[in-house]
């Protein structure tokens, strides 16, 4: 925590505000997201495309954290920086573990998508089902 100031406008977080810093954050974010949009318009292998997007997203978020939020290791901001660094792995673990847990669930437990009759179509005698799908159901 920072030192006490009787004038609230002298608080370090107020004094941290800077047009140059905020403009740089804005321009960097627009630039990186514009680059991401341009990349998405090209036919790239999915893995390569995903890697580029992850990189550009990381750059955008880093620019926002340091320039918009003003996170650094100063006395006024260090605990915000530390708490963010400790929380980011929770985000990654939450999404990553969920995706990993469900990645093979459908292939193990559900019918292939092309074997499932439409939701709007009632399951009657006209609804046909392939042999593998019937076997899967019977199992």
């Amino acid at each position: 925590m920072s030192a006490h100031h009787s004038d609230p406008l002298q608080n370090p977080e107020v004094q941290q505000g800077s047009t140059l810093r905020f403009a740089t954050a804005f321009l960097a974010s627009v630039l990186f997201m514009g680059a991401a949009l341009l990349v998405s318009q090209h036919k790239l292998p999915f893995l390569e495309f995903a890697e580029i997007l992850v990189g550009l997203t990381f750059l955008t978020l880093a620019a926002q954290a340091t320039l918009f939020f003003g996170l650094d290791i100063s006395r006024a901001q260090i605990w915000k920086s530390v708490s963010l660094i400790l929380t980011v792995p929770l985000f990654i673990i939450s999404v990553g573990l969920t995706v990993w847990a469900f990645s093979s669930l459908y292939s193990r437990t559900m019918l292939p998508a092309n074997e499932v009759p439409s939701m709007s179509m009632p399951m009657d005698s006209n609804a046909t089902m392939s042999m593998p799908a019937q076997q899967t159901l019977l199992q």
């Binding site: 925590m1 920072s2 030192a3 609230p8 977080e13 915000k80 985000f91």
Partner: peptide, 26 residues
């Protein structure tokens, strides 16, 4: 250092926002 009310409040709100971010994570 004396207790800085403004910084304490912004840090508390920052922690709230991190927990709010976990809603989006879900």
């Amino acid at each position: 250092d004396e207790h800085d009310t403004i910084s304490t409040r912004t840090f508390g709100f920052w922690l709230y926002m991190l927990s709010d971010a976990l809603i989006f994570t879900g």
